[in-house]
Amino acid sequence: MNNTGSITVLQKYKRKQLNQRSQTLMYIASGSIFLLAITVIGTLVGDIAITTNFTQKNFLPHMAHPFGTDWLGRDMLARTLKGMSISIYIGLFASVISAVIAAVLGAAAATLGKKVDAVITWFIDLVMGIPHLLLLILISYALGRGTFGVVVAVAISHWPVLTRIIRGEILQLKEANYIKIAEKLGQSKMKIVVKHMIPHVFPQFLVGLVLLFPHAILHEAALTFLGFGLPPEQPGIGIILSESMKYLSLGMWWLALFPGMVLMTTVLLFDVVGGSLRKMIDPHSAQE
């Protein structure tokens, strides 16, 4: 009765053309290249971004000026790239500071006892409880606005989420059996930190850092747009956008559209890169 020669296929693993992991790597690589390109070109354009040329003002986008020119005849492509690279630098700087704060506070909360933990947790709740933009404006305003004000404001308002993650990871790790066993086998605290803790926490830290970028960039732009950030002579992306508002009613849509799109793209790309990195590191999705 059962002597059918054929065999039933019960499940077929749908292999994609490119396996998932190569795809993720591709995302990371192309995202990083694009962002790096914006930063490098933006840095190199230098004076073009602020050179005025009244014979070429208010041009619609065309071959010579793909993003058009503004009311002073400045090339909008150069301005946008320059502005974006400034935002990326500030974002980078502020997120690194934020991430370092997060690492120190997270580790302290998890290892230095209940009192320290309570204080740090209280601070996390405090900072997270205040509306983000309000906090940014307050800090930046108190520090006299300008580049310094923005960097400090963005840096010291973005650490709580990552701090929580790191604190949680370390707390969980401290309860891991293999760490308790290492203690019983006579391993020193330092060795346990180097051998077990850092290799576990560092990747999470790195992903957290990359995922901070888009926030930092967006908040810097928002702060500047509202007039609490970079000074007007810097072609920050927030400045470009707020200036272009005045000309929108005159029908000069390209002044806001292209810089806005570049900002969006940059922020989304950082998010994709960070998300992909997390996917590769996270053991739950690593096998997909």
Binding site: N177, K184, L185, H196
Partner: peptide, 20 residues
């Protein structure tokens, strides 16, 4: 330091560092 009393656990996969 090294504890002269050592334990062997029921589930070995739960007591080794998966990254080592």
């Amino acid at each position: 330091g090294y504890c002269p009393v050592q334990m062997i656990w029921q589930h070995p996969e739960k007591v080794v560092n998966p990254r080592l």
